[in-house]
């Protein structure tokens, strides 16, 4: 009878642990710390399960897909009500996207950002991730304001790109926040930005990386493989690729035609609402298995099922 010896891999490295919140009555969220591949507890330690953040926008999203509008209803008109509802749906963190600061979306400024961040911090006791509109100058303006509004609350602030990492990194350093380093699906660029941020003085437990999410059918495989490579390199001992990873799954998944189109698509695509939700769920499943530590989601049903899957993977 063949004797099966379960093959166990011994890694030298470990994903850094990063803590959000946990100050002044705010709930604490710790991610990372794994010294093995995702969920492989038979050979290593996986101290914290991946977290789910629910995305909240700082204004009423003008062109969200129908199933999302239906699911959230009136709270889409108020970031505070929206964040509270997100907490009810079981979010581990709120991911506040300051989209209205985008020049095309209202061009709001520091004052508005400061107010929304303060309101949300007051309304929920979850850790908060604040994301800019992804336009370098505006990011600098609103994220610095957000940083000051949340001083000492250990927010995560993003995104730091190669262009603006100095400003965002410095403000994180000054106000005790975690910086999110975003790079375009490339391992070397990811590592380089992590090095630049740590040269600024940010410690290993103060950086998250966003490898850039490609949704299912829209580059998922690139993100998947770059994340596997980053994770493996980290486990082999490279501290500069060992930051926990955050993936904006909801945002990417729901901008695709497969999620948005209710008519004018082939019948073989099936029912829009069901399809769109599964699209987001499968994007999440793929990236969880590739090493995501924080998944930012949009649809409450996705949150519910991804939570089930994470708990089963973690059991």
């Amino acid at each position: 009878m063949p004797v099966v010896e379960i093959p166990v891999e011994k890694w030298n490295g470990q994903v850094h642990q990063v803590k959000l919140g946990g100050v002044g009555g705010r709930k604490e969220l710790i991610v990372g710390g794994d010294n093995t591949l995702p969920f492989l507890k038979f050979e290593g330690t996986v101290p914290h399960r991946p977290a789910i953040a629910i995305e909240v926008l700082d204004y009423t999203p003008p062109n969200w897909a129908e199933p999302l509008v239906k699911a959230w209803g009136d709270v889409l008109k108020s970031p505070v009500a929206w964040a509270k509802k997100a907490a009810e749906y079981g979010a581990n963190a709120i991911a506040l996207r300051l989209r209205s600061a985008h020049p095309e979306e209202g061009n709001t400024g520091a004052e508005h950002a400061k107010r929304v961040v303060t309101d949300i911090l007051g309304a929920v006791d979850l850790p908060v991730i604040v994301l800019g509109p992804e336009v370098a100058e505006k990011d600098n303006e609103v994220l610095v304001a957000a940083s000051e509004a949340g001083r000492g609350q250990r927010l995560a602030l993003g995104d730091c790109f190669d262009k603006n990492y100095r400003t965002i990194g410095a403000t994180c350093l000054a106000d005790g926040h975690v910086a999110i380093a975003k790079t375009p699906i490339d391992m070397n660029l990811a590592k380089q930005l992590n090095i630049l941020l740590s040269d600024l003085g940010l410690t290993m437990d103060s950086i998250l990386m966003d490898p850039t999410t490609g949704a299912l059918g829209y580059g998922l495989e690139y993100t998947y493989s770059v994340m596997e490579r980053l994770r493996i390199t980290a486990l082999m001992g490279d501290k500069m690729t060992a930051m926990p990873m955050i993936c904006t799954v909801g945002e990417e998944s729901w901008r695709q035609k497969e999620s948005k189109a209710s008519a004018g698509v082939p019948a073989t695509w099936g029912d829009q609402e069901k399809r769109a939700i599964i699209w987001e769920k499968l994007t999440a499943m793929g990236l969880l298995n590739a090493g995501a530590n924080i998944i930012v989601l949009r649809h409450p049903k996705t949150v519910e099922d991804v939570k089930v899957a994470i708990n089963k993977l973690f059991a």
Binding site: L216, G217, L220, E221, Y224, E258, A267, T268, W269, G270, D271, Q272, K274, R275, I278, W279, L282, G286
Partner: peptide, 18 residues
């Protein structure tokens, strides 16, 4: 089996096996 379930799954396979 429903198109809404299988279309995403087939896309997943296409992605991973590229």
């Amino acid at each position: 089996f429903s198109p809404a379930m299988v279309y995403p799954l087939l896309t997943m396979r296409l992605n991973i096996y590229t």
